[in-house]
Design a protein around this nucleic acid. Structure first.
Length: 202
DNA sequence: TAGCTAGCACTGGTCCCGCC
DNA sequence: GGCGGGACCAGTGCTAGCTA
């Protein structure tokens, strides 16, 4: 078990290109502890492990379930991207098998009328994106803009924001936000069967 | 319940090695 | 030689288990 924790921790740390001492400084755990954990000499306490994983950042659950062997996957075919639904909105996450990723890159599809809701939870970070097809109404803070193909946005995600398809056709867009969210970056995302609006425009 | 003991995580310091 | 990164070691503190 301790060996496994050490191997996983080292893999994550090297993935982030952080030295033991840097990770120790950021997490508040000593560098010797990190060294011993990575070598499997000790099994870290939950509190210590959490402090370390908070820096990476990754949840303890993801830490123990991540697939280290696949962590170096570079290319993803569209069809293999996992899908999630939040209401009517379809999300496909690139690099879902990389729990330690530094950002979330999503391909999103909004059927007509789809809406993230008035109160999209604001979180610290940045988001940018591009409309591929269709139109989307984007509200950031008090500003609202209708965006079409090849239009883009960029905002601090601690500002309340909302995406709404007020058009008659599905809108497909790509978005990228930091830091990476545990799953998706919009709220209430789930894997249930999609509402009829499943946009098989794929 | 209190005292003792062993085990373990954790810390601080230090050493070794490679690189510039 | 200085610096950074990783590993090692001795000591400390906490906790669980055992015994009276």
């Amino acid at each position: 078990m301790s060996d496994d924790v050490g191997v996983r921790l080292r893999a994550l740390r090297e993935l982030r290109n952080i030295s033991q001492r840097e990770l120790a400084r950021l997490s508040g755990v000593t560098h010797s502890s990190l060294s011993q954990i990575e070598q499997g000499r000790v099994s870290p306490s939950v509190s210590s492990l959490k402090k370390i994983l908070d820096v990476i950042p990754i949840s303890i659950g993801d830490f123990f379930t991540m697939d280290i062997e696949r962590a170096d996957q570079v290319f993803y075919q569209y069809a293999e991207l996992p899908t999630r639904y939040s209401g009517d909105i379809l999300y496909r996450l690139v690099g879902a098998d990389r729990p330690a990723r530094a950002l979330s890159f999503l391909i999103e599809t909004y059927p007509p009328g789809a809406d993230t809701g008035r109160e999209v939870a604001a979180h610290r970070g940045e988001e940018t994106g591009l409309v591929l097809e269709g139109e989307i109404e984007v509200t950031v803070g008090g500003r609202t803009r209708h965006l079409g193909p090849m239009d883009t946005w960029y905002f601090d995600t601690n500002i309340p924001h909302r995406f709404r398809n007020t058009g008659r056709t599905a809108c497909r867009l790509i978005s990228c936000c930091t830091p990476a969210q545990p799953d998706m970056h919009r709220s209430e995302v789930h894997e249930e069967t999609p509402p009829e609006a499943e946009l098989n425009s794929d």
